[in-house]
Amino acid sequence: MDYPNFLEFRQYRYLKMASLLVVTVSVAYVVYTDAAGGSYGGTWFGYVSGTLAAAMVLFLAWYGVRKRRVPVMPERRRVERRGLFADGEQVARNRRRGERREHRHNTPGLLGGTLQEWLSAHAYLGLAVLMVATLHAGFRLDWNVHGLGYGLLVLVVASGFYGAFVYIHLPGALSANLGDDTLEGIRCKIGELDELARLRAEELTDEVKALVTAARLETRILGGLYQRLADGRSGCPTERAVRRVQELGTELIHGDQPRQIHDLYLVLLQKQQLLHKARTHLRLERHLRVWLYLHTPLSIGLLAAIVVHVLTILMYW
């Protein structure tokens, strides 16, 4: 069954609402500027639209709180209870707390209580607030704290736009990459291949053993920041081992150990493929998460900038 994603929630309900809001504010802007000759944050239209934009930002920020209040996953709850198994009183207390939490989450909230609905509203109102804030400022910005707030809003919306894009498109790529495997399963298989490679390398030269040992002990699915940016493959001991064993296989084609080298090469090649799959998975996962490292801190910064913006306006009345 093809489930609608959060952008399509209830036939684009929040897209329609956000569009209506933007159109309404735009018409008000045109009417006001036509009557008054122009507008900026210090006009009546500016105050009203600014209040609206601030309220929208608070609502959008509340999503960060709301998403933490959904019921925890059953597995997570089981782990939690197992960890407290020894203390029966604590278990009972924990259970009561869980029941209260579930009751709270099952109670319909402002938007009906489903996280998908909140996310849909979050995405579309996030785009709408950028329009409202632009009209609030009357298309005028300066290099000050007021312009900083707008700049942060643009960055937050842009990062959120990227987040929505990857949330729509990357899960499919993740599934296609891993198939029936899991990351932990791949790790286990790599472990098995490492052990097999170790056994097959025992009869080979010291150089090969050193290569296999390095590939077993020093391989990281994702290395440091440089390796992450370079797709995790730069300087990988397994990559080095595959290349060198392939060369040795060519050199020893007429020697004593061509069969053993060939078997080892096949094992290392399998490991290399699994590593590639795991790295692709982690890279895609990173794309799913990395935008949040911009979106969340900038959102908190944006709230601070809005507080300063409002207080400054009131302070320097």
């Binding site: 704290v145 900083l148 790790r187 286990c188 790599i190 472990g191 490492d194 391989t219 990281r220 699915i221 994702l222 290395g223 440091g224 920041l225 390796q227 590593l275 982690l282 949040l292 490292y293 969340t296 801190p297 900038l298 959102s299 908190i300 910064g301 709230l303 601070a304 900038a305 507080v307 300063v308 207080l311 400054t312």
Partner: peptide, 30 residues
């Protein structure tokens, strides 16, 4: 098993960074 990442790979806390940014803005601009 092979480790997922190199030892010492940084773990950035998003909310901590955000709160730091907010404190910086409040200090500098307010």
């Amino acid at each position: 098993l092979p480790r997922l990442a190199a030892p010492g790979a940084s773990k950035v806390r998003k909310r901590s960074v955000g709160l730091g940014l907010a404190a910086f803005i409040l200090l500098l601009f307010l």
